[in-house]
Write a protein that binds this DNA or RNA. Structure first.
Lengths: 212, 212
DNA sequence: CCGTTATAGTAACGTTTGTTAGCATGCGGG
DNA sequence: CCCGCATGCTAACAAACGTTACTATAACGG
Protein backbone atom coordinates (compact mmCIF):
# COMPACT_ATOMS: atom_id res chain seq x y z
CA UNK A 1 0.00 0.00 0.00
CA UNK A 2 2.95 2.29 -0.56
CA UNK A 3 1.38 5.36 -2.15
CA UNK A 4 -0.77 4.02 -4.99
CA UNK A 5 -1.75 7.62 -5.51
CA UNK A 6 -1.18 10.78 -3.62
CA UNK A 7 -3.16 14.00 -3.44
CA UNK A 8 -1.86 17.12 -5.05
CA UNK A 9 -0.51 20.06 -3.20
CA UNK A 10 -3.48 22.12 -2.10
CA UNK A 11 -5.96 19.28 -2.05
CA UNK A 12 -5.43 18.17 1.50
CA UNK A 13 -9.04 18.82 2.35
CA UNK A 14 -10.14 16.08 -0.01
CA UNK A 15 -9.02 13.45 2.47
CA UNK A 16 -10.52 15.39 5.33
CA UNK A 17 -13.89 15.40 3.66
CA UNK A 18 -13.56 11.75 2.72
CA UNK A 19 -12.70 10.84 6.30
CA UNK A 20 -15.76 12.65 7.58
CA UNK A 21 -17.87 10.86 5.01
CA UNK A 22 -16.67 7.34 5.82
CA UNK A 23 -16.80 8.04 9.55
CA UNK A 24 -20.41 9.09 9.05
CA UNK A 25 -21.15 5.86 7.22
CA UNK A 26 -19.45 3.75 9.85
CA UNK A 27 -21.36 5.52 12.58
CA UNK A 28 -24.60 4.80 10.73
CA UNK A 29 -23.75 1.10 10.52
CA UNK A 30 -22.46 0.69 14.06
CA UNK A 31 -24.56 3.19 15.98
CA UNK A 32 -21.89 3.68 18.60
CA UNK A 33 -19.04 6.15 18.70
CA UNK A 34 -16.85 3.70 20.58
CA UNK A 35 -17.30 1.12 17.85
CA UNK A 36 -15.97 3.55 15.26
CA UNK A 37 -12.21 3.17 15.47
CA UNK A 38 -9.62 5.38 13.90
CA UNK A 39 -8.19 2.38 12.09
CA UNK A 40 -11.53 1.38 10.61
CA UNK A 41 -12.15 4.94 9.48
CA UNK A 42 -8.72 5.14 7.90
CA UNK A 43 -9.07 1.78 6.16
CA UNK A 44 -12.47 2.70 4.79
CA UNK A 45 -10.93 5.90 3.47
CA UNK A 46 -8.14 3.93 1.80
CA UNK A 47 -5.51 5.34 4.08
CA UNK A 48 -3.60 4.39 7.21
CA UNK A 49 -4.57 5.50 10.66
CA UNK A 50 -1.91 8.15 11.30
CA UNK A 51 -2.91 9.99 8.15
CA UNK A 52 -6.21 10.86 9.78
CA UNK A 53 -4.29 12.81 12.39
CA UNK A 54 -3.13 15.24 9.70
CA UNK A 55 -6.65 16.63 9.67
CA UNK A 56 -8.03 15.94 13.15
CA UNK A 57 -6.11 16.31 16.41
CA UNK A 58 -7.83 13.28 17.91
CA UNK A 59 -10.80 10.98 17.62
CA UNK A 60 -13.07 13.24 19.64
CA UNK A 61 -12.53 16.11 17.22
CA UNK A 62 -13.39 13.94 14.24
CA UNK A 63 -16.55 12.58 15.82
CA UNK A 64 -17.56 16.00 17.03
CA UNK A 65 -17.62 17.13 13.41
CA UNK A 66 -19.57 14.07 12.30
CA UNK A 67 -22.13 14.36 15.08
CA UNK A 68 -22.61 18.08 14.58
CA UNK A 69 -23.23 17.48 10.88
CA UNK A 70 -25.80 14.82 11.66
CA UNK A 71 -27.60 17.03 14.13
CA UNK A 72 -27.79 19.77 11.52
CA UNK A 73 -28.98 17.36 8.83
CA UNK A 74 -31.67 16.02 11.13
CA UNK A 75 -32.95 19.48 11.94
CA UNK A 76 -32.91 20.33 8.26
CA UNK A 77 -35.04 17.30 7.45
CA UNK A 78 -37.62 18.46 9.99
CA UNK A 79 -37.68 22.01 8.66
CA UNK A 80 -37.83 20.90 5.04
CA UNK A 81 -40.73 18.58 5.74
CA UNK A 82 -42.62 21.36 7.49
CA UNK A 83 -41.97 23.86 4.73
CA UNK A 84 -43.15 21.48 2.04
CA UNK A 85 -46.39 20.92 3.95
CA UNK A 86 -47.81 24.37 3.34
CA UNK A 87 -48.92 26.97 5.83
CA UNK A 88 -51.46 25.28 8.07
CA UNK A 89 -49.69 24.84 11.42
CA UNK A 90 -51.21 21.48 12.26
CA UNK A 91 -50.28 20.05 8.88
CA UNK A 92 -46.78 21.44 9.23
CA UNK A 93 -46.44 19.82 12.63
CA UNK A 94 -47.77 16.54 11.34
CA UNK A 95 -45.27 16.56 8.48
CA UNK A 96 -42.50 17.33 10.92
CA UNK A 97 -43.52 14.48 13.18
CA UNK A 98 -43.56 12.03 10.30
CA UNK A 99 -40.18 13.29 9.14
CA UNK A 100 -38.84 12.79 12.64
CA UNK A 101 -39.86 9.15 12.77
CA UNK A 102 -38.96 8.48 9.15
CA UNK A 103 -35.50 9.93 9.57
CA UNK A 104 -34.87 8.07 12.80
CA UNK A 105 -35.95 4.74 11.39
CA UNK A 106 -34.08 5.25 8.15
CA UNK A 107 -30.72 5.70 9.84
CA UNK A 108 -31.06 4.07 13.24
CA UNK A 109 -27.36 4.27 13.97
CA UNK A 110 -27.29 8.01 13.59
CA UNK A 111 -30.50 8.51 15.52
CA UNK A 112 -29.15 6.46 18.38
CA UNK A 113 -26.00 8.49 18.61
CA UNK A 114 -27.84 11.79 18.42
CA UNK A 115 -30.78 11.22 20.72
CA UNK A 116 -30.46 7.96 22.50
CA UNK A 117 -27.09 7.61 24.06
CA UNK A 118 -25.35 8.84 27.13
CA UNK A 119 -22.11 6.98 27.18
CA UNK A 120 -21.90 5.75 23.63
CA UNK A 121 -23.33 8.88 22.08
CA UNK A 122 -22.94 12.58 21.73
CA UNK A 123 -21.97 12.93 25.37
CA UNK A 124 -18.42 12.04 26.17
CA UNK A 125 -17.26 13.81 23.05
CA UNK A 126 -16.13 16.81 25.03
CA UNK A 127 -18.82 19.18 23.83
CA UNK A 128 -18.20 22.78 24.65
CA UNK A 129 -20.61 23.58 27.49
CA UNK A 130 -20.71 27.25 26.46
CA UNK A 131 -22.07 26.73 22.99
CA UNK A 132 -25.60 25.41 22.83
CA UNK A 133 -26.18 21.70 22.60
CA UNK A 134 -26.38 20.61 18.92
CA UNK A 135 -29.66 18.83 19.59
CA UNK A 136 -31.30 21.99 20.90
CA UNK A 137 -31.97 23.26 17.38
CA UNK A 138 -34.24 20.37 16.49
CA UNK A 139 -35.97 20.72 19.83
CA UNK A 140 -36.59 24.39 19.15
CA UNK A 141 -37.92 23.61 15.68
CA UNK A 142 -40.41 21.20 17.19
CA UNK A 143 -41.34 23.67 19.90
CA UNK A 144 -41.96 26.42 17.37
CA UNK A 145 -44.14 24.17 15.26
CA UNK A 146 -46.21 23.26 18.30
CA UNK A 147 -46.47 26.85 19.44
CA UNK A 148 -47.81 27.82 16.01
CA UNK A 149 -50.67 25.39 16.51
CA UNK A 150 -52.04 26.80 19.73
CA UNK A 151 -53.68 30.15 20.40
CA UNK A 152 -51.63 33.06 21.64
CA UNK A 153 -53.30 33.06 25.05
CA UNK A 154 -52.42 29.38 25.49
CA UNK A 155 -48.87 29.72 24.25
CA UNK A 156 -47.51 28.91 27.69
CA UNK A 157 -48.54 25.27 27.38
CA UNK A 158 -46.55 24.89 24.17
CA UNK A 159 -43.33 23.71 25.86
CA UNK A 160 -45.29 21.08 27.70
CA UNK A 161 -47.06 19.90 24.56
CA UNK A 162 -43.82 19.90 22.60
CA UNK A 163 -42.10 17.79 25.21
CA UNK A 164 -45.01 15.36 25.26
CA UNK A 165 -44.85 15.05 21.52
CA UNK A 166 -41.10 14.73 21.49
CA UNK A 167 -41.17 12.01 24.12
CA UNK A 168 -43.72 10.04 22.14
CA UNK A 169 -41.87 10.38 18.85
CA UNK A 170 -38.61 9.45 20.51
CA UNK A 171 -40.22 6.43 22.11
CA UNK A 172 -41.69 5.29 18.80
CA UNK A 173 -38.30 5.48 17.11
CA UNK A 174 -36.11 4.25 19.91
CA UNK A 175 -38.18 1.24 20.93
CA UNK A 176 -38.31 0.11 17.33
CA UNK A 177 -34.57 0.48 17.03
CA UNK A 178 -33.83 -1.19 20.33
CA UNK A 179 -36.18 -4.14 19.93
CA UNK A 180 -36.66 -4.65 16.19
CA UNK A 181 -38.04 -8.16 16.62
CA UNK A 182 -41.23 -7.13 18.35
CA UNK A 183 -44.48 -6.83 16.38
CA UNK A 184 -44.63 -3.04 16.24
CA UNK A 185 -47.76 -1.47 14.82
CA UNK A 186 -47.71 0.99 11.95
CA UNK A 187 -45.66 4.06 12.93
CA UNK A 188 -48.16 6.41 11.31
CA UNK A 189 -50.92 5.30 13.64
CA UNK A 190 -48.66 5.91 16.62
CA UNK A 191 -47.71 9.32 15.29
CA UNK A 192 -51.38 10.24 14.95
CA UNK A 193 -51.95 9.26 18.55
CA UNK A 194 -48.95 11.30 19.62
CA UNK A 195 -50.49 14.35 17.98
CA UNK A 196 -53.85 14.12 19.75
CA UNK A 197 -52.79 16.26 22.69
CA UNK A 198 -51.60 19.04 20.39
CA UNK A 199 -54.72 18.74 18.27
CA UNK A 200 -56.91 19.02 21.36
CA UNK A 201 -55.08 22.11 22.54
CA UNK A 202 -55.26 23.62 19.07
CA UNK A 203 -59.01 23.03 18.89
CA UNK A 204 -59.87 24.92 22.06
CA UNK A 205 -60.79 27.88 19.86
CA UNK A 206 -60.95 27.92 16.07
CA UNK A 207 -58.42 30.08 14.31
CA UNK A 208 -60.07 33.21 12.87
CA UNK A 209 -58.53 33.25 9.39
CA UNK A 210 -59.31 29.68 8.46
CA UNK A 211 -62.91 29.05 7.39
CA UNK A 212 -63.09 26.93 4.24
CA UNK B 1 -3.56 -8.42 49.05
CA UNK B 2 -2.39 -11.96 49.78
CA UNK B 3 -5.47 -13.55 51.27
CA UNK B 4 -6.62 -11.20 54.02
CA UNK B 5 -9.45 -13.63 54.50
CA UNK B 6 -10.71 -16.59 52.64
CA UNK B 7 -14.16 -18.13 52.44
CA UNK B 8 -14.91 -21.39 54.15
CA UNK B 9 -15.36 -24.65 52.37
CA UNK B 10 -18.92 -24.73 51.13
CA UNK B 11 -19.39 -20.99 50.95
CA UNK B 12 -18.22 -20.47 47.41
CA UNK B 13 -21.54 -18.99 46.41
CA UNK B 14 -20.94 -16.06 48.73
CA UNK B 15 -18.46 -14.62 46.27
CA UNK B 16 -20.70 -15.41 43.37
CA UNK B 17 -23.53 -13.46 44.92
CA UNK B 18 -21.21 -10.63 45.86
CA UNK B 19 -19.89 -10.44 42.32
CA UNK B 20 -23.40 -10.22 40.94
CA UNK B 21 -24.17 -7.49 43.45
CA UNK B 22 -21.18 -5.31 42.66
CA UNK B 23 -21.58 -5.88 38.93
CA UNK B 24 -25.15 -4.67 39.30
CA UNK B 25 -23.97 -1.56 41.12
CA UNK B 26 -21.30 -0.85 38.54
CA UNK B 27 -23.80 -1.26 35.76
CA UNK B 28 -26.10 1.21 37.49
CA UNK B 29 -23.30 3.77 37.72
CA UNK B 30 -21.91 3.30 34.24
CA UNK B 31 -25.01 2.41 32.26
CA UNK B 32 -23.03 0.44 29.73
CA UNK B 33 -22.10 -3.22 29.71
CA UNK B 34 -18.86 -2.51 27.91
CA UNK B 35 -17.83 -0.08 30.62
CA UNK B 36 -18.19 -2.79 33.26
CA UNK B 37 -14.89 -4.63 33.16
CA UNK B 38 -14.06 -7.90 34.82
CA UNK B 39 -11.22 -6.21 36.65
CA UNK B 40 -13.43 -3.46 38.05
CA UNK B 41 -16.00 -6.00 39.17
CA UNK B 42 -13.34 -8.10 40.83
CA UNK B 43 -11.73 -5.10 42.55
CA UNK B 44 -15.11 -3.88 43.81
CA UNK B 45 -15.70 -7.36 45.19
CA UNK B 46 -12.32 -7.29 46.97
CA UNK B 47 -10.91 -10.00 44.78
CA UNK B 48 -8.70 -10.40 41.72
CA UNK B 49 -10.05 -10.81 38.23
CA UNK B 50 -9.36 -14.52 37.68
CA UNK B 51 -11.33 -15.39 40.80
CA UNK B 52 -14.48 -14.26 39.07
CA UNK B 53 -13.94 -17.01 36.52
CA UNK B 54 -14.48 -19.60 39.23
CA UNK B 55 -18.17 -18.72 39.13
CA UNK B 56 -18.79 -17.45 35.62
CA UNK B 57 -17.33 -18.91 32.44
CA UNK B 58 -16.96 -15.49 30.88
CA UNK B 59 -18.10 -11.88 31.06
CA UNK B 60 -21.20 -12.49 28.97
CA UNK B 61 -22.45 -15.10 31.41
CA UNK B 62 -22.02 -12.76 34.35
CA UNK B 63 -23.77 -9.89 32.67
CA UNK B 64 -26.53 -12.13 31.43
CA UNK B 65 -27.32 -12.96 35.05
CA UNK B 66 -27.21 -9.32 36.09
CA UNK B 67 -29.39 -8.14 33.22
CA UNK B 68 -31.92 -10.92 33.71
CA UNK B 69 -32.19 -10.00 37.39
CA UNK B 70 -32.76 -6.36 36.51
CA UNK B 71 -35.43 -7.21 34.00
CA UNK B 72 -37.22 -9.30 36.59
CA UNK B 73 -36.89 -6.60 39.24
CA UNK B 74 -38.28 -4.01 36.87
CA UNK B 75 -41.28 -6.14 36.00
CA UNK B 76 -41.83 -6.80 39.69
CA UNK B 77 -41.87 -3.08 40.42
CA UNK B 78 -44.59 -2.61 37.82
CA UNK B 79 -46.68 -5.48 39.14
CA UNK B 80 -46.27 -4.43 42.76
CA UNK B 81 -47.33 -0.89 41.97
CA UNK B 82 -50.39 -2.14 40.15
CA UNK B 83 -51.35 -4.51 42.93
CA UNK B 84 -51.05 -1.84 45.59
CA UNK B 85 -53.36 0.41 43.59
CA UNK B 86 -56.50 -1.62 44.14
CA UNK B 87 -58.82 -3.17 41.63
CA UNK B 88 -59.89 -0.35 39.31
CA UNK B 89 -58.09 -1.06 36.02
CA UNK B 90 -57.39 2.56 35.14
CA UNK B 91 -55.93 3.25 38.55
CA UNK B 92 -53.82 0.13 38.31
CA UNK B 93 -52.54 1.21 34.90
CA UNK B 94 -51.80 4.69 36.17
CA UNK B 95 -49.84 3.29 39.11
CA UNK B 96 -47.94 1.06 36.74
CA UNK B 97 -47.09 3.94 34.47
CA UNK B 98 -45.81 6.03 37.34
CA UNK B 99 -43.79 3.10 38.60
CA UNK B 100 -42.30 2.69 35.13
CA UNK B 101 -41.06 6.26 34.99
CA UNK B 102 -40.05 6.36 38.63
CA UNK B 103 -38.01 3.21 38.31
CA UNK B 104 -36.36 4.34 35.11
CA UNK B 105 -35.38 7.71 36.49
CA UNK B 106 -34.23 6.27 39.79
CA UNK B 107 -31.66 3.96 38.20
CA UNK B 108 -30.93 5.44 34.79
CA UNK B 109 -27.99 3.17 34.17
CA UNK B 110 -30.06 0.06 34.56
CA UNK B 111 -32.93 1.42 32.53
CA UNK B 112 -30.58 2.30 29.71
CA UNK B 113 -29.13 -1.16 29.58
CA UNK B 114 -32.53 -2.82 29.70
CA UNK B 115 -34.54 -0.70 27.33
CA UNK B 116 -32.41 1.76 25.57
CA UNK B 117 -29.38 0.10 24.11
CA UNK B 118 -28.59 -1.92 21.06
CA UNK B 119 -24.86 -2.21 21.10
CA UNK B 120 -24.07 -1.30 24.65
CA UNK B 121 -27.06 -3.04 26.14
CA UNK B 122 -28.84 -6.30 26.56
CA UNK B 123 -28.16 -7.22 22.96
CA UNK B 124 -24.73 -8.54 22.25
CA UNK B 125 -24.87 -10.58 25.42
CA UNK B 126 -25.59 -13.71 23.47
CA UNK B 127 -29.16 -14.13 24.60
CA UNK B 128 -30.68 -17.45 23.77
CA UNK B 129 -33.03 -16.79 20.83
CA UNK B 130 -35.23 -19.72 21.84
CA UNK B 131 -36.17 -18.47 25.27
CA UNK B 132 -38.31 -15.36 25.35
CA UNK B 133 -36.66 -11.98 25.57
CA UNK B 134 -36.32 -10.92 29.23
CA UNK B 135 -37.98 -7.61 28.45
CA UNK B 136 -41.08 -9.28 27.08
CA UNK B 137 -42.45 -9.89 30.58
CA UNK B 138 -42.71 -6.21 31.40
CA UNK B 139 -44.23 -5.58 28.00
CA UNK B 140 -46.83 -8.22 28.67
CA UNK B 141 -47.58 -6.77 32.10
CA UNK B 142 -48.23 -3.40 30.51
CA UNK B 143 -50.32 -4.94 27.79
CA UNK B 144 -52.47 -6.83 30.27
CA UNK B 145 -53.05 -3.70 32.33
CA UNK B 146 -54.14 -1.82 29.22
CA UNK B 147 -56.37 -4.64 28.08
CA UNK B 148 -58.10 -4.64 31.46
CA UNK B 149 -59.06 -1.01 30.91
CA UNK B 150 -60.90 -1.44 27.64
CA UNK B 151 -64.14 -3.26 26.92
CA UNK B 152 -64.10 -6.83 25.74
CA UNK B 153 -65.40 -5.94 22.30
CA UNK B 154 -62.56 -3.43 21.87
CA UNK B 155 -59.88 -5.71 23.20
CA UNK B 156 -58.23 -5.84 19.79
CA UNK B 157 -56.99 -2.26 20.07
CA UNK B 158 -55.22 -3.04 23.34
CA UNK B 159 -51.86 -3.92 21.74
CA UNK B 160 -51.92 -0.65 19.87
CA UNK B 161 -52.77 1.36 22.96
CA UNK B 162 -50.17 -0.45 25.00
CA UNK B 163 -47.50 0.27 22.44
CA UNK B 164 -48.49 3.92 22.33
CA UNK B 165 -48.30 4.12 26.08
CA UNK B 166 -45.03 2.27 26.19
CA UNK B 167 -43.47 4.52 23.59
CA UNK B 168 -44.52 7.60 25.52
CA UNK B 169 -43.27 6.31 28.85
CA UNK B 170 -40.02 5.20 27.30
CA UNK B 171 -39.59 8.59 25.67
CA UNK B 172 -40.24 10.39 28.92
CA UNK B 173 -37.60 8.34 30.71
CA UNK B 174 -35.03 8.08 27.97
CA UNK B 175 -34.98 11.71 26.91
CA UNK B 176 -34.56 12.78 30.50
CA UNK B 177 -31.69 10.36 30.92
CA UNK B 178 -30.06 11.26 27.64
CA UNK B 179 -30.32 15.02 27.98
CA UNK B 180 -30.51 15.78 31.69
CA UNK B 181 -29.64 19.43 31.25
CA UNK B 182 -32.82 20.39 29.43
CA UNK B 183 -35.71 21.97 31.33
CA UNK B 184 -38.00 18.97 31.45
CA UNK B 185 -41.50 19.45 32.78
CA UNK B 186 -42.94 17.43 35.63
CA UNK B 187 -42.96 13.73 34.69
CA UNK B 188 -46.38 13.23 36.23
CA UNK B 189 -47.97 15.67 33.83
CA UNK B 190 -46.38 13.86 30.91
CA UNK B 191 -47.58 10.54 32.26
CA UNK B 192 -51.12 11.87 32.49
CA UNK B 193 -50.94 12.95 28.88
CA UNK B 194 -49.59 9.56 27.88
CA UNK B 195 -52.64 7.94 29.46
CA UNK B 196 -55.23 10.01 27.61
CA UNK B 197 -55.49 7.62 24.68
CA UNK B 198 -56.15 4.69 27.00
CA UNK B 199 -58.61 6.74 29.04
CA UNK B 200 -60.47 7.70 25.89
CA UNK B 201 -60.70 4.10 24.76
CA UNK B 202 -61.80 3.01 28.22
CA UNK B 203 -64.56 5.62 28.31
CA UNK B 204 -66.27 4.50 25.13
CA UNK B 205 -68.76 2.61 27.28
CA UNK B 206 -69.00 2.70 31.10
CA UNK B 207 -68.19 -0.54 32.83
CA UNK B 208 -71.36 -2.18 34.18
CA UNK B 209 -70.24 -3.22 37.67
CA UNK B 210 -68.79 0.14 38.74
CA UNK B 211 -71.37 2.62 40.00
CA UNK B 212 -70.27 4.26 43.24
C1' DC C 1 -2.57 -35.25 61.98
C1' DC C 2 -2.37 -35.41 57.11
C1' DG C 3 -3.61 -35.17 52.53
C1' DT C 4 -7.38 -33.66 49.36
C1' DT C 5 -9.61 -29.93 47.51
C1' DA C 6 -12.05 -25.78 47.22
C1' DT C 7 -10.65 -21.02 47.17
C1' DA C 8 -7.97 -17.35 45.73
C1' DG C 9 -3.71 -15.16 43.87
C1' DT C 10 0.44 -14.21 40.47
C1' DA C 11 1.96 -13.82 36.15
C1' DA C 12 1.28 -13.59 31.72
C1' DC C 13 -0.70 -14.01 26.88
C1' DG C 14 -2.77 -12.03 22.90
C1' DT C 15 -5.64 -8.49 21.06
C1' DT C 16 -7.34 -3.96 20.28
C1' DT C 17 -7.15 0.83 20.80
C1' DG C 18 -5.60 5.81 20.53
C1' DT C 19 -1.68 8.08 19.56
C1' DT C 20 3.29 9.56 18.44
C1' DA C 21 7.92 9.55 16.21
C1' DG C 22 10.34 9.35 12.34
C1' DC C 23 10.83 8.43 7.42
C1' DA C 24 9.81 8.40 2.39
C1' DT C 25 8.25 10.81 -1.73
C1' DG C 26 6.37 13.52 -5.14
C1' DC C 27 4.27 18.10 -6.29
C1' DG C 28 5.26 22.87 -7.10
C1' DG C 29 7.50 27.42 -6.74
C1' DG C 30 11.99 29.71 -7.19
C1' DC D 1 16.43 22.15 -12.22
C1' DC D 2 16.11 21.64 -7.38
C1' DC D 3 14.86 22.37 -2.82
C1' DG D 4 10.96 22.65 0.56
C1' DC D 5 6.95 21.21 2.27
C1' DA D 6 2.68 18.87 2.10
C1' DT D 7 1.20 14.24 2.09
C1' DG D 8 1.10 9.70 3.55
C1' DC D 9 3.35 5.39 5.47
C1' DT D 10 6.01 2.21 8.74
C1' DA D 11 6.94 1.13 13.25
C1' DA D 12 6.03 1.36 17.57
C1' DC D 13 4.41 2.52 22.41
C1' DA D 14 1.51 2.47 26.34
C1' DA D 15 -2.74 1.31 28.17
C1' DA D 16 -6.76 -1.56 28.84
C1' DC D 17 -9.21 -5.62 28.18
C1' DG D 18 -10.75 -10.69 28.36
C1' DT D 19 -8.87 -14.75 29.42
C1' DT D 20 -5.69 -18.80 30.71
C1' DA D 21 -1.99 -21.46 33.07
C1' DC D 22 -0.01 -22.26 37.05
C1' DT D 23 0.84 -21.74 42.03
C1' DA D 24 -0.14 -21.18 47.03
C1' DT D 25 -2.84 -21.99 51.12
C1' DA D 26 -6.27 -22.76 54.41
C1' DA D 27 -10.18 -25.62 55.61
C1' DC D 28 -12.31 -29.90 56.19
C1' DG D 29 -12.73 -35.31 56.08
C1' DG D 30 -10.43 -39.28 57.36
Amino acid sequence: MTAPHRRRRGTGHELRDLVVRVATDLLAQLGDVDAVTMRSVATAAGVTAPSVYRHFPDKQALLRVVVAERFAAFTDELRTAADSAGEVPLLRLEAMSRAYVRSGLHRPGHYRVLFSATNAGAAGLGLDPDTEHPGAASHRALLDAVAACVQAERRDVAPMLATELWASLHGIVDLRITKPDMPWPDPDALIDAALTAVRAAAATRPRPQEAP
